[in-house]
Amino acid sequence: MKSAAFQYSRPETVAEAVALLTAAEGSAMPISGGQSLLILMALRMTMIDRLVDISRLPELRELRDDRSDVFIGASTTHAMIEDGKIPDPSTGLMSRVASRIAYRAIRNLGTIGGSMALADPSADWPACLIALDAEVSIAGPDGQRWEKAEDFVSGAYETILLPGEIVLGFRIARRQSMRWGTAKVSRKSGAFADSMAVFVEAAGDGLPRAALTGTTSHARILPRVGKYAQNRSILDPGDLRAAILDDLAEIVPDADAYQLRCHVATVSRAITDARAS
């Protein structure tokens, strides 16, 4: 189980990285933590001609606290977030989510940017960042752009990243009186989620956001659930269930009965978890 041969470069700047990715003959891929990519390569499920090591680029390691929002560089590891070594716009949600990703040794290298860019359908960060309504900073041959996290992931292992583009980081707004909850179902500890939900709401700040991952496609917001939960302190289990099922019918039309039960459970429990805090 050894990777096929590839070229390796370690650029010093983002511009250089983008240039390498753009100019590469054959397939090129940025690598940071490599905790998913190197596995796919070892299994020869992914064959790449050139790896561009972006793990040391200073721009991707940036952490900025601008009071109203926080910028988290793409190379920030799950473990740094788990250990509270970043300015936290989420009052603990991100630390909780990070602590439940895979295993500690994986979290020490795996990065939030890599997780988003790979967009594994069962990954935790897409759901979390969508629920937090984060924005993604992207650098590419045509300069830098911002996109909403919700629009960034577009399918299983699919994002809106164009060839040569890399994720620089994420901007997450601080909210007042934020409440959050999360719930996950997996076959065993550390395994990818079969269903994972994140629920976030804040005082006077638009709709509560419920996000779901672990489907065959990508992480998505459940709009009807948000609407139903808004300004309603006591939720009727039947009505909530109906709202969840309505959303699921739209975003995961191919889900079977078991998957629906899991999704209903994780979404409901994420809300309960948020409201209990």
């Binding site: 490599g34 190197l38 596995i39 040794a105 290298l109």
Partner: peptide
Amino acid sequence: HGACGACTVSLDGMVVRSCVVL
């Protein structure tokens, strides 16, 4: 493939899976 931990080593003081590090 990073799932069993037998290859765990320390990298700059952190535990990592040496099979998923280049």
